[in-house]
Amino acid sequence: MRITVKTETCVGAGQCVLSAPDVFDQDDDGLVTVLDAEPGPEHSDDVNLAWQLCPSGSITVTEPAVQD
């Protein structure tokens, strides 16, 4: 899976950091930052929870195409 985030809509709730601490962090402004943009399948439950809990819809999770 591939993760993209939008800092311009992030409201700094920190739910992604709590759900998937190996994948997401908050920068000095408290906004989302991605530690691992292509995490392995062992992180998929955590990432899904982060995506579900994000109150501002600032996380996108996609399956990259094989040709990428």
């Binding site: 409201v11 700094g12 402004d29 408290g30 906004l31």
Partner: peptide, 11 residues
């Protein structure tokens, strides 16, 4: 909100 977020981060 943006001014206050840094005060309430998980860290």
């Amino acid at each position: 909100r943006k001014a206050l977020i840094p005060e309430f981060t998980v860290r």
